[in-house]
Design a protein around this nucleic acid. Sequence first.
DNA 1: GGGCGAGAAGGCC
DNA 2: TTCCAGGCCTTCTCGCCC
Length: 668
Amino acid sequence: MDNGESSSSTNNSSRPWESYNTVFTNAKAGMEGVDKEKVQRIVYEMSKGSKYFQNEERKDAHMKQKIDHMRDRCAKLSSSDLSNYQKVVDRRVLELEATRDLSRIWLHVDMDAFYAAVETLSDPSLKGKPMAVGGLSMISTANYEARKFGVRAAMPGFIARKLCPDLIFVPVDFTKYTRYSDLTRKVFGNYDPNFIAESLDEAYLDITDVCRERGLSGAEIAEELRSFVYSETGLTCSAGVAANRLLAKVCSDINKPNGQFVLQNDRSTVMTFISSLPVRKIGGIGKVTEHILKDALGIKTCEEMVQKGSLLYALFSQSSADFFLSVGLGLGGTDTPRVRSRKSISSERTFSATGDERLLYSKLAEIAEMLSQDMKKEGLTARTLTLKLKTASFEIRSRAVSLQRYTCSSDDILKHATKLLKAELPVSVRLIGLRMSQFLDEIRNSDPSQGTITKFIVQKDSSRQDLDDIESFDIDASNNEGGSLSFGSHETSYGHLKDVVEYEERSHIDSEEVITNQECMEKEERRQVLEGDALLIKHKECKPDTSHSMNDNPNAQNTEAVSVFPQTEPLFWVDGYKCVLCGIELPPSFVEERQEHSDFHLAQRLQNEESGSSSSTTPSKRRILGKEKANSKPKKQKPDQKDSSKYIPIHTFFTKSNQNSSNETQKK
DNA sequence: GGGCGAGAAGGCC
DNA sequence: TTCCAGGCCTTCTCGCCC
């Protein structure tokens, strides 16, 4: 990279493509003999002038600015600074060395050109021909014949076709890939039941035990596993065997395709191996990190990370520097981590750039629905919604909002996403994404006997479930002595809980549809009727003899519901604003709050009936009060705190000083 | 002034 | 001719609160 020079568009060189930082010329398995300059030139020629290209230039300029800034800081370091940082490095090296574990044998399996190989199995006529899975806009993977032309994953199809005019495009079919992936995983499970699936086509296996039990070496197990994978699927894979996952992953790439590489478990072999290894080979170090390390600090190999450790600790955050140093020592994960808990879930779609608001809202609705479906499938509820937009000029914007309650409802997601989008208009957009984070996982991850409560919360349109409510729900349940909240009792109760909830959901949706065209008071009346009816249905299920006619005409049943449910009065707003159960006052215009409030009483009542507990928690007023004070922040929850113990933060890092990266994307 | 949470952005596969 | 994904994670900055 031509450091410090202007961006590529203004480069006066007769070979401007040389400074175009495409990722497509990076060495990847099967691309060894590729004419890199030709690929780079074609990619440059086809990209230049496009909005994508301009955006790349902007990013490139930003990266260069960052590198320059780092260099400046580097130059300002005094020898005593460096000597102090060196002491830190020396100490950390000792500490890290103490954690070195050479007793484990890890195997990394990587399927060869997975999607392309599966497609070739389905259609043998593709064998031997250059082929890519994907379309003209983007390809997901390419077979080895296509890679000889420089075609590779994440490359736009139109560029791939230019590089290889005979390229055959096959559409992506994830169902098929998942099926084959399942077959490979069955094989993996025979060697390590706790194997870590990284993606559809990659996995880590701790084969220490199987090696010992069968008296076989890592190489022999790898050979056997690959052979079983082939006989089960007809697909080839490559494997790496080493003392930790980081090294095993590097090793699996060495003899690709259909090969394996074993790195012996002794320190000097590891250190020799790592000494000349380019940093880019390490998982977690990508294009940007590679450039920063090389151009700001002159670090190209893993060994140099240790040699220049003082600079790393001077310029990077502690966690980033620790990561780099451990890489330089050839250290990596050796334990089987507990199941990674996801932090967010998202859905996004790219389409032709448009500024048509109606179209944008309709895309938004589709995505909200998809996200909601995914969340329900995974049993997740969350309270932070982030809208991501990629504008026609490839600028990425994200706008987030934290909701008052945990939800997975598409209505809720869409409602808030619409507000976020509205604030950005007018804008021409080519991608919309929605992400939900801050999961309700204290409950999700709590003891298994609470599964049905979780299910209840999740399956219910949780849009109206307040955190406080859930917490009290949970606590009440767990405090209930004598195991009256056993799994069995939940099972029994779940049926009618679910029905009530589903009924209520339907009612809610119906009422919402009507509401849009109704006056506020009328809406409130209707809601009262529906609330009363939901309780009634619940009651009917408990007492099957109750008249069936109740359900037929909800609007006519409210008073009936009251009369047949005397021991637990239905929720009713006295004088139109006061809850008869707890006395809290909420004017009719506080529609959402009133809905939540009634939900709370409903849930509490069901809970109490099941557990026999009469413990009652008044729904928190603090949020309601917070609402009244329009600008006050909601009471801080314990967030899903960064679980720093789980993984070394790797992928992204920044210098310790201020970034001062003028955020053009910021602030409107 | 430090701790903390929310929002935004960057980065990797 | 066609003009660059989708998902997830981490860190940073800023502002509020104690």
